[in-house]
Every structure is written in C-alpha cells, then in structure tokens.
Design a protein around this nucleic acid. Structure first.
Length: 856
RNA sequence: GGGCGGGUGGUGGAAUCGGUAUACACGCAGGACUUAAAAUCCUGUGGCCGUAAGGCUGUGAGGGUUCAAGUCCCUCCCCGCCCACCA
C-alpha cells in the first residue's frame, strides 16, 4: 500500500522520538576520534521558522549526517540569537515582557526544528539572552576594555529615529536603518566602540587563508576593509602657521592640484570662519550640509556643492597659491577630511571645478591621444599616461611616477607615505533594553570603572516597562542604575546602554564547544578539539557584518591565548534565497509558504528532499508545489520498492520473502553466474555511490546527488522487471537458484540506495532500514558505502561518429579497440558509410571511449 | 560609476581539463487499469521538414579559433547581487 500522510507522521514522530531517547547525536570531545564541526548560522527566535531556515538547516543537516556516516565525530549544535529589537517591539505591541515573549518563541522554534528531524546535539542548545551566556559577553567586553580595545568616544554617529538607537556603519544600508528602513540621521554622542581597526591588517591578510569561502564574500570583506595606499601631503596655509594635511592615492597628479577642499566638519573651518567676509555663506553652507541626510550626501549623482572659505594654500611642489574650499563631497570620516583637487584626473574634482570656474591643469597625457586639452575635456581623464607640466617628472609613466614622487616628497618633507582604511571602529552602544548590559560603572571621582569580574553577570533587570519612547529603558530603573563604585565605594551609576546584538553572535560558535560551562567562557581543550568550524552555512546577507565581527573576535581570543587559530570558519557555504513567483519570500510581500503547513501535509522528509533537489544550495530556489508533490511521489515509490518487493508471487515454495532474505546474509555471489542485467545493476549501484560521494566531496551539489539516487532507483525498477522475465521457464529448483541470486543483488542495491538517501530523508530511511531487516542498527550511523572500481569497468562502449564536425552515427566497440579496429567498426553504421562513399579521409581523430571524428 | 555572479526546452535544472547539448525531475500529450475519478504503471516530449530512414536548425546577439564550441577569444545586449562622492 502506498503510504499516507498519517503513515509519514507516525514514522517521523517515531524516529524523532528514537533519536531523542537514544541521544543519537550527542557528542563529546574525544581526541582519539577525528572531528567535524558543522554549523548553521543560529536563528533569531521569532517563533515560527521560515523557508530560509528550513533550507539553511537542511543543508547543514545533510552535511552533518553524511560526515557521521563517514565516521567523523560530528559536532552539530543549535542555539538562539535571542537578544534584539523584535522582542521589544512585540512587548510594546502586546504589552508583554520581552523576556517572556522571547522564551515562548524559543520553545516554539525548538519544537519546529525537532519536527524537521535535524541531527542536533540538543544538550548544547543555548540562548544568548540567558545570563549564563551574556555573562561571557560582559567578560569579553572587560577583556577588551583592559586592552584598550573597548573605549568610549564622542563622535558623529548614525542614529535611527524610529528605533531610537545608534547603529554601526555596517548596519546602515543606503543611508537607512538595516532593520526598519527609516532614514538614518547623524548625531553627536558619546558611545562605546570596539577597536576592530586594530585588526584591520590581519583581517585583510588572512582572507587569503580562506580559500574555501566563496570568493565574492572575500572580495566584499576586502572592499569593506578598504586598504588604500597613498600619501599624506602637507599644504601650508598662506599667511598662517596652519598646515592642511590631505590624503591622496594619486601623488603622481600633485602638479595638477589647483585647489584644496575641506569637509564642512573639518576643525580648521570652525577656527577660521569667524570674521571673514565669506562667514555668512560658509555658515549657511555648513548648516545646509549638516541637514542633508548622509545617504543623500553620499549618493554619487548628487551635484557637488561648496563654498570658498577666504583662504589660500600653497602647493608644496610648485609654490602655487591655490584657493581653499569646503565641499559636501568631502567626508570628514575618511582620510584626513581634506583633499587636494586635481580636476583633470578626478571626475568629482572636475565637476566641482567646472561648476565654480576653477583652474585646471593637464598633468597626464594619454599616450594614445596626445591632444587632451582643457577646453575640449568633457570629463576627467582617469586612465594611465605620461606626466606633463610636472617639472623633473615629465615624461615618466604615471604609475611609475606615483612611487617616485611619493619618495621625493617624503624626502623633501612635503608629505609622508601612508595607508588609509575604510574600516571604522565598531560602535556597539545601543539605547535599548533587550540586550547585554555594558558592564561599566560611572563614578564621580573614578570615572568609567569596569565592573569587577567577580560581580558578573550584570543582570538585565526583569519587569521593565517598554514604551519605545524617551531613550534607554534601563535609564529609568533606579534599582539598576544606582550602585556603588567598585573602586572607592561611593555612590555611582551604571551604564544603561546595552550591547549591539552582533556582539552576541561574534563568538557563539566557541561557546558551543563548552555550552554550559559556568566557570569559563569555554574550555580551552574543548575548543582546541572542535574548532575551527569545518563547515559554516548561512545567508549571503551576513557576508560583511557577522562574518567580519566573528573573525575579529577570533583574532582577539588568539591574542588572549584562548585559542591557537586565527580564523573561525574553515569553509563557508552561502545558501541562496527562497523565492516565490520570482520574488524573495517575505512577510512584507505576503508571498510566504509556512513550513508548518508543508510539514502537516507531506512531512519533513519530502520538504527536505524538495528543497535540496530543486536547486544547488548556493543558487536561488523557486518554490514550486508541483516539485514538492514530485518529491513525495519519489519517496512513496522507494517505500513501495522495499515494502512490496518482487518475490512472493514467483517463488513456489513455503519460503517467504523474509526468510529467503535472512538466508541471503550467508549467500555468496558467484560472479561468473552474473548475466548482463546483473552486471548492469551492479554498475549502476557502484556508479551511484561514486558520484554521490563525489557530489559531497566536491562542493555540495545535492541536486545532482539526488538525481543519481533517482537513476539508481530507476535501474532497480528496471532490474525488477527483468527479474520476472528471468523467472519464467525452468524447473522450480532452477528458478529458485536464479531468484536467490537476483534477490541478493536487488536487495544489495536497495540497501545501498537507502544508505545514500539517508542523509537527505533520514526518517524514512530509518524506517526502510528496519523494514529490510536491519533491526539492530540505526541507518544514520551505518558506514557510508564504498564503491568497487572493478564493477564500473566496461568491456564495451558506444562510440559516436562525427563526419566533418557533425554527428552521423554510432557503433559499439570494445574498450581496448585500436585505431584500425575503430576505423573498421565505423563502417558498420550504414549512415556513416553513406557519407564516406566516394570521399577521401583526410583526418581520423579518436577521443578514447567517446567518439571518432572523421574529416573528408 | 566599480566589483562579482548569471543568461541552456513549457518549468526547476544537468553537462564547462573543448568531445554525442538538454541528465534527473516537474509539466504536457497519448495509452493501460477503473463504471468513473484519483493514485499507479507504460510510451512520447527543443523547434522545423519527413510515413519512415533521415535531414536542417538550436545553449542572450554577432563575429572568430578548431576536426569538434554551451564551454576558448573578440564585440555587444540583458538580468541579479554587493559596494559606492573612500580622495
């Protein structure tokens, strides 16, 4: 009988219960075993899992289960990234406690993950909002504070008016908040930062080690870190002692610098502005720029605006007096907040110069077009070329001149060779409730004092009213704020900002190594055994934020001597998005498919199989309910294959199929008795093992792995059909001998099929493994099958014949055939002979075991 | 503007050290079973021509290299993602 939804439900529940009861996936560090650490990015516990989760965790689960069958000691944990704003938003909306809401969601999520049959070590389940976890956040913070890597400074920060909190640069997307999409504004605030820039060099350099990461993630990080080589050049200010330092990557163009531009926020501007005749214009301009949102100001198409500031600078290389402007296209945060403008070689400077009728000078000529002249220029020339109007450097190629001019200027003290980074320090203060309290106490006499280690954790107070108004909620909790200074014991106040939640997820992979250790952040020996993460899986959206922060923390832990590696994730797989009707599935689009509904109709195995079969893991996946139905049918077919094999109707004896199968355990196959069908089946079986193993080892091409399983299933069905034919005729005893051999081969193929399918659809395969008589073993722990190269050898192959580049026929030849034999065999195809009639063969090319190509 | 992917049947996708394009699946069509439907099984399925054998054509467009090109080279078009007044 075909199975039903109810059968599937009971099969899946049965095995989930079995794995639980036997703690099948619980692991311990054991140095005698080779380890493998598979990790999927842990979820934010919003309650229900979505298809993106299903895809992410299914991919991880298949890898984990495959590695277990390969004999590895596999660590495969799960947890919850449980702090964050949705809990507060829910609290405001439903008037509940964020903690209560979060723990309820975690329970629900836990149940849903269990229903998917994932092979997690549930003993290591963690939540970042537990004090036993966030205590160690505070510990890490204090360690960083001790080393000057956590510090407080006032600066212009990104502020989301809707979330009422600050944001890291990485959290600002196109000038909007990454979470709520509202326009981010700039505010001057005193905030806590982590000195990620301290590791800029190694964060960049070590990307080279990450050969098993997608190259685009490496490139994105590289661009984000943004190392640029160049020099700082000093421009003396005319009639003043002041010097403007600019940063440039193009010292080769210094002779073409015809003005200088400062960022409106540049400190020299404030100093100079009062009393000059342009004062009003300058102040108006500064205010106008400040009011512009950062996103508007930074968009490239924006018309560049600026204003003359009433002063001049001296170009150090030629002594020219050039005007100083302030301009909205110069950013205070990058470089020195000041630039030298070379309009002929920089498009932005060119546009600005044209607009304000500023002078230009050509200093690089395009060797292909020596007639570049200022009047006819429509845009800046940003290509390479030969220097002109540059005194002793005339005639030198500009790439070469970069180095020469830089060296010369440095020697003449006109500037210094330097490197600038795009990467900024990481702002971690958040004016929110639902996060880790920053463990600092402010004392009037002692200043900012770290909370002593023995007073950790600083507990997040419970029963706090969340209104979403009026700044940090913790600020209003007197019992939390009021404390005493650990140094001088005078009354003091606690820091009320909490940490950005990316802090929590920057080291959770290490916590999994010693999930519930309350003495240390993690056990050094356990981390040494389990780390690094061998395979990490998650969405591309974390290519910069989370992955960069995790790399930063790992490097810090190495400096602390806690770990002896400097990269956390050996291999990274970024899974594609799940789409429906060509668009990303999302609540806001209203095109989601609830995994729960799919589970109640088809069960976890069907869902898993469909998701893995529909597209390679890294590609986008288009949801297709027909495809889901197809996966269901396939699994049903496999079930039939095991449930109702050929046999009972063929064997004319009292033996049942079951006791024949029992006898088969002692059966010895006589290879010489095998007919072509037997050999074909064995070939298909071994080919499947070979190719599926290969799809696991060479990138995770699960879609083609599954198609190989289907091919094997087709071969078994075909073989079963031939079995019936082979049973016809002969005496009952003769028939029995043939039947026994065939049943042996068929059973062996079915067994192989179950093993190969087990990582993908674990529940059904456990059930089938039992049905086929393997009552004493759990399929998920059976050794992965190995293939027999001898069975793959063919004695004959089909050759295609190409005549003048077109396929004209084919023939069968022994694999050992010589060129002469092949030439003769060609002629056995009548279509080929027709084409060769009356023609002279000019060339005869043989591609071994594939084709022959004849040129006539 | 810069960087990185990608463009293959009606659909999801196979095949890229150059070697029979469209594996596997979905869908569709026809058939078997059934009073009927569902399920299941069998057959067919890029397009055009042909009863057939077979022929022509076909991997975004155009050109090139080669006995042979989805794959390599040149020119161009389109789509997706990321970054972006970063000096």
């Amino acid at each position: 009988m075909p199975y039903t939804t109810n059968d599937i439900k009971s099969i899946e529940a049965k095995w989930q219960e079995y794995w639980d009861r036997h703690q099948t996936f619980r692991v311990e560090a054991d140095s005698t075993k080779k380890k493998y650490y598979v990790l999927e990015m842990f979820p934010y516990p919003s309650g229900k899992i979505h298809m993106g989760h299903v895809r992410n965790y299914t991919i991880g689960d298949v890898i984990a289960r495959y590695k277990i069958m390969q004999g590895f000691n596999v660590l495969h944990p799960i947890g919850y990234d449980a702090f964050g704003q949705p809990a507060e938003n829910a609290a405001i909306k439903h008037k509940t406690d964020p903690g209560e809401w979060t723990y309820r969601c975690i329970d629900q999520m836990h149940e849903e993950l269990k229903r998917m049959g994932f092979s997690y070590d549930w003993d290591r389940e963690i939540s970042t909002c537990d004090s036993e976890y966030y205590k160690w956040n505070q510990w890490v913070f204090l360690k960083m504070f001790e080393r000057g890597l956590a510090y407080k400074k006032t600066s212009s920060v990104n502020w989301c008016p809707s979330c009422q909190t600050t944001l890291a640069n990485e959290e600002v997307i196109d000038g909007t908040c990454w979470r709520c999409k509202s326009l981010v504004v700039q505010k001057d605030l005193e905030q806590w930062y982590l000195k990620i820039t301290h590791y800029a060099e190694s964060l960049l350099k070590d990307l080279k080690q990450l050969q098993d990461w997608p190259s685009r993630v490496r490139i994105m990080q590289q661009n984000w870190i943004g190392k640029s080589f160049g020099m700082e050049i000093y421009f003396k200010v005319k009639d003043s002692q002041e010097v403007i330092t600019v940063f440039t990557t193009r010292p080769d163009t210094i002779f073409g610098a015809t003005y200088v531009v400062l960022a409106p926020e540049h400190p020299l501007v404030k100093k100079w502005v009062s009393g000059i005749k342009e004062e009003k214009d300058v102040l108006a301009f500064i205010e106008k720029t400040a009011n512009k949102s950062k996103s508007l100001r930074m968009s490239g198409d924006q018309r560049k605006e600026g204003v003359f500031i009433g002063r001049h600078a001296i170009n150090p290389v030629n002594g020219e007096t050039i005007p100083i402007f302030i301009g909205d296209y110069v950013l205070m945060e990058y470089g020195t907040g000041a630039i030298m403008a070379v309009p002929t070689n920089d498009q932005r400077d060119f546009e600005f110069a044209r607009q304000y009728h500023l002078p230009m000078r050509i200093v690089i000529q395009d060797p292909k077009n020596l007639k570049i002249n200022i009047e006819q220029m429509a845009e800046a020339y940003e290509g390479t070329g030969v220097l002109v109007n540059s005194k002793q450097f005339d005639g030198i190629n500009n790439e070469e001149a970069k180095e020469k001019i830089a060296q010369w200027m440095q020697k003449e003290h006109m500037g210094k060779i330097s490197v600038h980074w795009r990467l900024r320090d990481w702002l971690i203060s958040r004016q929110r409730y639902w996060g880790t309290p920053i463990p600092v106490i402010y004392c009037e006499s002692c200043g900012a004092v770290p909370v002593p280690y023995d007073q950790l954790p600083v507990h997040l107070p419970k029963n706090v009213e969340i209104t979403g108004q009026g700044g940090s909620p913790l600020n209003r909790i007197e019992t939390f704020v009021e404390t005493i200074c650990p140094k001088c014991f005078k009354p003091a106040r606690r820091e009320t900002d909490t940490m950005a939640t990316f802090f929590d997820s920057s080291w959770y992979f290490l916590r999994f190594c010693s999930a519930h250790n309350n003495k240390e952040i993690f056990k050094k020996q356990e981390a040494k055994y389990w780390m690094e993460v061998d395979q990490y899986i998650g969405g591309i959206e974390h290519a910069i934020l989370h992955l960069l922060y995790s790399r930063f923390f790992t490097k810090f832990f190495k400096d602390l001597g806690l770990v002896d590696f400097n990269e956390p994730f050996k291999r990274l797989l970024t899974q594609g998005m799940v789409l429906k009707d060509g668009e990303v599935m999302s609540k806001s689009r209203g095109n989601t498919v609830d995994p729960d509904e799919v589970l109640s109709k088809y069960g976890a195995d069907t869902l898993r199989l469909f998701i893995l079969f529909a597209a390679p893991p890294e590609d986008q996946l288009e949801w297709n309910s027909d495809g889901l139905e197809g996966a269901w049918k396939f699994l049903n077919r496999i079930y039939q294959m095991v449930d109702k094999p050929i046999g009972t109707d063929v064997v004319q004896s009292e033996r049942t199929i079951e006791n024949i199968r029992n006898e088969l355990s002692n059966y010895i196959l006589n290879i010489s008795e095998m007919d072509d069908n037997d050999k074909g089946l064995e070939r298909a079986r071994n080919l499947a093992i070979k190719q599926i193993t290969q799809s696991f080892e060479e990138g995770y091409k699960f879609n083609t792995a599954i198609s190989q399983i289907m091919i094997l299933a087709n071969a078994i069905d075909k073989y079963t059909f031939h079995m019936r034919v082979a049973m016809e005729g002969g005496s009952p005893s003769e028939r029995f001998l043939v039947f026994r051999r065939k049943l042996f081969l068929q059973t062996r193929s079915i067994e192989t099929l179950i093993l190969l399918l087990a990582p993908f659809t674990p529940h059904l395969c456990e059930e089938l493994w039992q049905m086929i008589g393997k009552k004493d073993s759990t399929v998920c722990k059976v050794a992965w099958p190995k293939f027999d190269a001898a069975a793959l050898k063919q004695t004959e192959v089909i050759y295609a014949v190409q005549i003048n580049g077109k396929i004209r026929g084919q023939f069968t030849a022994p694999v050992t055939a010589s060129q002469e034999q092949l030439c003769e065999l060609c002629m056995t195809d009548t279509n080929v002979t027709r084409y060769l009639q009356g023609a002279t063969i000019k060339k005869f090319i043989v591609v071994p075991n594939k084709l022959v190509s004849i040129v006539v």
